[in-house]
Design a protein around this nucleic acid. Structure first.
Length: 853
RNA sequence: GCUCGGGUGGUGGAAUGGCAGACACGACGGUCUUAGAAGCCGUUGCCGGAAGGCGUGCAGGUUCAAGUCCUGUCCCGAGCACCA
């Protein structure tokens, strides 16, 4: 039932149809295994306090068009939405106001939901999820337990980024230019006990399987670079003082081993102290302290001159027995390879620079053909004993083999990818389902629930006591957050949870996971041990690592999703979201997914087979939108002034979906006029169907244009080219305007094409023009290829490649006829006059190019 | 520094190697109106009265034909950054 408004009153029309869709459950994904499925997913938002940003509806409109189009194409569509609701802003708000972050989060969700609904998106709200809901994070915790049980989670005391302002550690990825990505506060290094996920165990598969996914090439390359695979060799140098054992280095150029004139250890390398000799000890120690105080930004500043200090010790080059001095320098980092290198200044830029600065010898071992050093190109070996004359790639292979044969090295592969720092000293995150117990407690657990434990116990030592990580039994999940007095982190660097003694210090039942405060007497029956809960919480990435699976079966109490649902819906057919998640979210989610695949939980080994990034919408001034610049465009304002349909159309009309585009506030008038024009053509001044839209027959040109439009809009939607689809619909509307009339059927077909873009508008006119039911359920119109055929085409005449005239000719016109027509063409003829034709190029139905002398 | 992506009218943008500038915005002129708004009609890459010439960052090249392919170069944007 249409509204009763006389003119195009979107204030009335849009809420009307939104209510209609809601009441009719129009977007409910069916449970119908016989029907072909289409799963289209948006990156779910973090419900921030500032509400929806114009960038959200850009991507959401794109997926909504796809979803509605696929419904019309007869697919069973899954188009869900939810909330990535754990996160720092809500916690900071809680610290300021003392209110629970959950209440702030729920308020924000209400706002987001209202705004999203006002845009008329076809989400299946019955599948809404919220990562902070215990019914959801129960399964986040469950997945963590699987990682734990498989030995993919461990604790490690490691130098991590600590932000004094935020009072938490941050992942490498959350630190940008020596400052926190959130808030831009300075960060420093601290040694803290952390949970770490062994993502490096999946490095090879994460890299290899990128080949099979349909992603933007740039994103694949970013992940490749992030994983950073490099093949080389680990080479073992004996130390002159054998009491310290051998020194292992990683190199990608074992062929240049004869050119190694010194070694470098990272300042954090465990052998540094032992290798510093005599009067150099003090100098080495001073250097090490200085390096520790440097931020990564200072250390990696390429403009800075290299620094370093000689240790006083020597290693022995395994290929020629030469003594090689060992230096300590911070251009070598501990986190990659072995934290030590063999320096070959003739063939490495960094080593070259260092050697020059400290006047170390430079020995060339690859022929450079006269090119200056450092030389990194191709060439044959020199000064390399038995390997002289070999191409370097060949020498690389042979030297590696020879070293391996002598036990002095082996071919290895190294990755830049580091294990994933997975803990945060915060309140507002998923608690780890882990209890720390002593050795005796762990021994009991090994007897009681060995199925839950990893092959090797996860432990740490503090104050001479070893603590053992014990998982909660899955049936005891979720482990919920306790309410706390203060959301401020504890002074020790632990999360606020460390202050909640009754939650923290417990008697723990190994069999059931039940707990009572340690202050209470130990319960009699059951396998109770004394324990202390883990106080860290999980990072925000955790909840978003698997949410696309929960949408398949969001209310399941027994599993992350039923196997049948996982099989039927599979992975999203299309995943749309910002390129800022190119590495982190998309890599973490792939990692978890592969683990779940190995567990047999999910049937496919990649989560996101097709990915698309919507571009950023810049402010009017061409700058990134930000409150401080005052160039933020609010969807609410535009919905009020022009309507959701106009906003949706304009967002898509702005340019290619993946492009970065500035917002032009005046341009929105164009698409609004387009809708007004369609309304005016089809609806009379009194609100009834116009006389014009009641024609008996369409002009042949209009029919042809309609079929062209059906084809182009369909093709463009499939390829996410929404801007050109809209342009084609505008062309059609302009043609209708100029035509004397249009049939009801043609008008209805056109409205169907428009419906995915401007759904409220299309439903309204569909209803007024007598369309049956909801336009969403009407099958997508098919074009008739025979209608696209033309009898006449415009042939362009060129002389020497220049356009000199054109003429309509029948399809199938031959070169001879065309040439004759050109000669007779009054505009072309003068250019042929008195010239000799050297060559004629004829492209049927397109161009005739006459090359003359 | 390395790796990508991109430079087309006043603006956003369009163009399987085959008429560069579709579709819009803006601007200008007209129509309607007491006036305006909306709508409608027309013009709108640059130079030129016209004929015509020039034109897709710049310089070359391939081709009958280049925004599109190749080489070099400049500029803008993104990502990575002493990873051995």
């Amino acid at each position: 039932m249409a509204t009763d408004c006389i003119d195009y009153n979107f204030h009335k029309i849009e809420p009307h149809w939104q209510t209609f869709w809601e009441e009719n459950h129009s977007f409910r994904a069916e449970r119908n295994p016989a029907k072909q499925k289409y799963y289209v997913l948006d990156m779910f938002p973090y419900p921030s306090g500032s509400g929806l940003h114009i960038g959200h509806p850009e991507g959401y409109t794109a997926t909504d068009i796809l979803a509605r189009y696929k419904w019309a194409r007869g697919f069973n569509v899954l188009h869900p939405i939810g909330w990535d609701a754990f996160g720092l802003p809500a916690e900071q708000h809680a610290v300021r106001t003392g209110t629970h972050p959950a209440s702030n989060t729920q308020n924000n969700i209400v706002t987001f939901k209202r705004q999203i609904k006002a845009l008329g998106f076809s989400y299946d709200w019955e599948r809404e999820i919220d990562t902070t809901d215990p019914r959801y994070f129960r399964w986040t915790q469950w997945i963590f337990l699987q990682l734990f049980q498989r030995g993919l989670a461990y604790v490690d005391e490691r130098a991590v980024w600590w932000c004094p302002e935020l009072r938490t550690v941050l992942a490498n990825e959350e630190v940008v230019d020596g400052r926190s990505e959130v808030g831009g506060f300075p960060v420093e290094r601290r040694n803290l006990r952390q949970w770490v996920l062994r993502i490096t165990a999946y490095a090879e598969r994460l890299l290899a399987d990128l080949k099979g996914v349909d992603w933007p090439e740039s994103t694949k390359r970013m992940q490749e670079a992030w994983i950073g695979r490099s093949e080389g060799a680990e080479i073992r140098f004996e130390l002159e003082d054998k009491s310290h054992g051998p020194l292992k280095v990683f190199t990608t150029r074992p062929d240049t081993l004869f050119g190694c004139t010194y070694m470098v250890l990272a300042p954090e390398h465990p052998l540094v102290e032992a290798l510093a000799t005599g009067d150099l000890k003090a100098e080495v120690e001073a250097y090490r302290r200085k390096a520790a105080g440097k931020s990564d930004l200072e250390r990696t500043d390429l403009a800075k001159e290299k620094s370093g200090v000689f240790s006083g010790s020597f290693a022995i080059n395994p290929v020629n027995g030469q003594r090689v001095p060992i230096w300590i320098a911070d251009y070598v980092v501990m986190g990659y390879g072995t934290g030590a290198i063999m320096a070959v200044p003739a063939h490495d830029e960094r080593d070259h620079e260092f050697a020059q600065r400290f006047s170390l010898p430079i020995v060339q071992v690859v022929e450079s053909g006269g090119a200056s050093l450092p030389y990194l190109g191709d060439g044959r070996m020199i000064h390399s004993g038995a390997y002289n004359g070999l191409p370097w790639q060949e020498a690389k292979r042979r030297i590696t083999e020879d070293l391996a044969a002598r036990g002095a090295g082996r071919a290895t592969v190294n990755y830049k990818l580091r294990d994933w720092l997975f803990s945060r000293q915060r309140y507002w995150g998923e608690p780890f389902p882990i209890v720390w117990v002593d050795e005796a407690g762990y021994a009991r657990a090994q007897a009681t629930r060995p199925d839950l434990l990893p092959g090797e116990a996860v432990t740490f030592v503090q104050g001479g006591v070893r603590h053992y990580a014990l998982p909660l039994p899955p049936e005891a999940l979720p482990l919920e957050l306790p309410s706390v007095q203060s959301y401020l982190p504890s002074g020790t660097g632990e999360s606020p949870l460390a202050n909640e003694t009754s939650w923290l210090e417990i008697w723990f039942d190994l069999e059931t996971g039940a707990a009572v405060p340690a202050s209470a007497p130990r319960p009699a029956a059951g396998a109770w041990v004394r324990g202390r809960r883990e106080t860290n919480t999980m990072p925000q990435w955790a909840g978003s690592c698997w949410y696309y699976l929960r949408f398949l079966d969001p209310h399941n109490r027994d599993a992350i999703a039923a196997p049948a649902a996982l099989r039927y819906w599979g992975a999203p057919d299309l995943y749309v979201g910002g390129a800022e998640h190119a590495v982190l979210h998309l890599l973490y989610a792939r990692f978890w997914h592969k683990v779940l695949f190995d567990l047999g939980v999910v049937p496919q080994d990649e989560p996101f087979t097709k990915l698309f990034h919507q571009g950023i919408i810049l402010g009017e001034d061409g700058e990134k939108m930000s409150k401080t610049r005052g160039n933020v465009v609010s969807p609410d304002t535009l919905i009020d002034s022009h309507g959701a349909d106009t906003l949706r159309l304009y967002l898509m009309f702005l340019g290619p979906l993946d492009a970065m585009k500035p917002w032009n506030p005046r341009g929105i008038e164009g698409v609004h006029r387009f809708l007004q024009k369609v309304w005016r053509e089809l609806i009379a001044a009194d609100g009834s169907v116009s006389a014009k839209a009641s024609a008996d027959a369409d002009a042949p040109e209009l029919i042809k244009l309609l079929h062209e439009t059906i084809k182009k809009v369909g093709d463009d939607i499939e390829h996410l080219r929404f801007n050109t689809a809209i342009s084609q619909m505008m062309i059609f509307a302009n043609a209708v305007q100029k035509a004397p009339g249009v049939t009801r059927d043609t008008a209805l077909v056109f409205l169907q094409l428009l419906a995915p873009f401007a759904p409220h508008f299309a439903e309204e006119l569909w209803s007024r023009l007598g369309g049956q039911g909801s336009i969403m359920r009407a099958p997508w119109p098919a074009y008739d290829p025979s209608r696209l055929a033309t009898s006449e085409v415009k042939l362009v005449f060129q002389v020497n490649g220049k356009h000199r005239g054109d003429q309509f000719v029948p399809v199938g016109t031959t070169q001879e006829t065309a040439l004759q027509l050109a000669r007779n063409n009054s505009r072309v003829a003068p250019f042929l006059d008195g010239k000799t034709v050297k060559r004629v190029v004829f492209v049927p139905a397109r161009v005739l190019n006459i090359v003359v002398e």
